[in-house]
Nucleic acid binder design. Structure first.
Lengths: 342, 342
DNA sequence: TTTCAACACGAAAACGTTTTCGTTCCAGTA
DNA sequence: TACTGGAACGAAAACGTTTTCGTGTTGAAA
């Protein structure tokens, strides 16, 4: 087991000073041709690599970006990570991943850990509990300390930082418009409680689409789910009582539960009822019938977030600064859970 | 925007020396009651937190563990990360996630990046390309430098380090035994090419189960898939030509493709053909019919890996060292893709 | 009154870099 | 000969900690 090579050791070995070694390796013109060659040869031979920690301390930057997400066992978030990782790596950054488990306290703890020098900036999506509480002091604090932050997907209006979101309203609208186009008139909505911003916005899109097509909004056809745990039973109970020919669900799970309970009632998807979900994941693709969904382009969101963050990191903060919000467009992926267009 | 508070600034502000501040904050008995209280109050009030980077440099450890996985958009790996993250956080460690994209070069690059001080140790699962090449010099190198490593799932025999694996042979055997128990006799195997160790081992289990039950092994019923991309078509073609009553697939995707093509042929799952997959994910659970699978307990594997690594990190390396291999047992989750037991 | 602990605190080194500012030496010029 | 200027290199500070080893002051014992 050989310990790591350092500048000091090279210097001692070659009988020059530490500064000479450092300069030689960075191709400084201050160092004579001969010594430079000798040092570089030695370093190469013994595979010298500068110590990142020392560099971080010196340069006051870590070349690491922290990403905090509510949960990782969730297709959408993994695609986002994947996107972040991709551009981060291209730009020479590492990615430190933390999980908030949808808990406010863990989110705060994670931020505090990473804010003390471990990262140069943050990319995060808020925990459900955080959104519910509306307490963003931890964010305000790190931003105030000069750490760039990018919020994605689950964002908060009142935080001033860069944001990457999808147009949930338009996404929802698109889905419902499609249902209308293929002939549905009695369209149910399965959404989440309103403090989850995306649920609220997609609900908004649902209502807009109906209104624009002169279909009146029947609040009885709207289900708002609080707890993931009981969603399956709730959806089943909800659909059993109602006569619908279309369902728009704000995520994959709800959509699939809907399909299941429709089947259980002896009806067919898509012949009797068409179903559209949100967030295009493996599940939607592989399900039988495969699900028509509004695709969220997590990878793109991750890439945009990383680009935004790194851009801010790499320029002097003195330049005229303003915060951007990037809206990643949604797409509609048509599969087998909807009737074909007439 | 206020810059971070440091010991030096506190010292200057309170007109004491840096060392006094440091000692006071660490409750050293060297410092008088009064000054200590004053310093602690000041630090608390202005929310002083020591700089992690400086600590890392001083202590020569980062309290960070690196995890390198082939791909993140894969349920099994995310559950592993989740497990690692959980115990790492409990023990005060951060997790640096890198993706190899199944590429040898990216794996090497990632390890080099992290090995230069960013990380105290590694947890990794080998890239497919790496296993194919059989080139593990990058691993040998970091281990040789005294960095502890834990390999999980996709491991290499010839690397001496801690390992966390599942008993793939027994897992495969269990599945096939179950198929036999419910009356299947013509059991197909859909596996991967042999250099992926798990594919090889599960195939082994398949053969063992057949042999033990006096069913002779028909190589024509074994399909080995190289490329994920074309798997669906390959499986379809394979199954169309063969008369089977049971299928054991070495992952979720293959299992689902199998179910699909069986359906397409007008046969029923599970009435005509029973199907068992490997790796229990969201997909298996939500699929219709839900899949009977061998569950791999990714979370457990992540937890065990992290525990193993941290244990090694936190004791002096001088103690009698040897490498452990933890075998996480598999379970069989019976769902709707298999006939009920007679 | 002298001597010696005990106490309370500070100076400095160390971790591994980069960078600024000398310093030395020698060739070339006046 | 004396001076200038550049080339080649080294010393030291700095990043923010922790820790070892002083050092000065006090009070009590001799």
């Amino acid at each position: 087991m050989k310990p790591k090579l350092t500048l000091k050791k090279i210097a001692k070995e070659l009988d020059v000073s530490i500064s000479t070694v450092s300069k030689a390796l960075r191709d400084s013109s201050e160092i004579g041709e001969e010594t430079r060659a000798k040092i570089k040869a030695f370093a190469k031979h013994y595979n010298y690599k500068p110590n990142n920690i020392a560099l971080s301390l010196k340069n006051r930057k870590t070349k690491t970006i922290g990403i905090i997400i509510p949960e990782i066992v969730h297709h959408f978030f993994t695609t986002v990570i994947s996107g972040v990782e991709k551009v981060a790596n291209e730009m020479g950054y590492n990615v430190l991943v933390c999980l908030s488990d949808n808990s406010f306290d863990k989110e705060v703890l994670n931020m505090e850990m990473l804010a003390n020098g471990s990262t140069d900036g943050f990319i995060l999506s808020l925990a459900k509990e955080t959104m519910q509480k509306g307490d963003y002091h931890h964010l305000a604090e790190v931003i105030n300390q000069g750490m760039p932050c990018v919020l994605f997907d689950r964002v908060a209006e009142d935080i001033s930082c860069d944001k990457v979101i999808i147009d949930d309203v338009t996404g929802g609208k698109k889905a419902v418009q499609y249902l209308i186009d293929i002939g549905c008139r009695k369209i149910a909505l399965i959404s989440t409680v309103d403090y989850v911003s995306v649920g609220k916005l997609r609900t908004h899109g649902y209502k807009q689409a109906l209104a624009e097509n002169g279909i009146n909004i029947n609040e009885d056809l709207i289900l708002k789910i609080e707890e993931m745990e009981d969603s399956e039973k709730e959806i089943e109970a909800f659909l059993k009582e109602r006569d619908v020919d279309g369902v728009f669900a704000v995520n994959e799970h709800f959509a699939i539960s809907a399909v299941k309970s429709i089947h259980d009632q002896g009806k067919k998807v898509p012949d009797d009822v068409s179903v559209i979900g949100f967030t295009d994941g493996e599940l939607s693709k592989r399900f039988i019938p495969s699900l028509t969904t509004v695709s969220q382009h997590g990878m793109r969101m991750g890439e945009e977030s990383a680009r935004l963050l790194i851009e801010k990191l790499e320029r002097t903060p003195s330049e005229d600064d303003y915060y951007k919000t990037i809206i990643v467009e949604t797409g509609l992926v048509v599969r087998d859970s909807t009737k074909s267009r007439k």
